[in-house]
Amino acid sequence: MEHSHEEIKKHVRKYIFVFVALMALTVITVVVSYLHLTITTAVIVALFIATIKGSLVAAYFMHLISEKKVIYITLLFTVFFFIGLIVLTMTAFHDQVMIPHVS
């Protein structure tokens, strides 16, 4: 990695900015939770904020914003299979001839 001194300093400023953003988002998501929104809205808001926070960590702390192709490809497939797992399993549970839960 041919990072110059200056470049790293620029990075450090970014890290501080990201830190502040993460803190702010944490506060927002907690405050929203006290509003006791309906579950659908709450899920959407909470996961939306979490995704932003997660993306910030991944992009800047984990340097995914400027990473090599091999890693992008690997993660792309991983995310695809993860989505496959979650979506197909959920669909299968919804599309059930017999109801799985009999109480």
Binding site: T29, V30, V32, S33, I39, A42, V43, A46, L47, I49, A50, K53, G54, V57, A58, F61, M62
Partner: peptide
């Protein structure tokens, strides 16, 4: 950072929802 990232998702989905 990954451990942190997992927590970022765990926190809202377990505590806030």
């Amino acid at each position: 950072h990954f451990v942190d990232l997992v927590w970022i998702f765990l926190f809202p989905s377990l505590y806030l929802l």
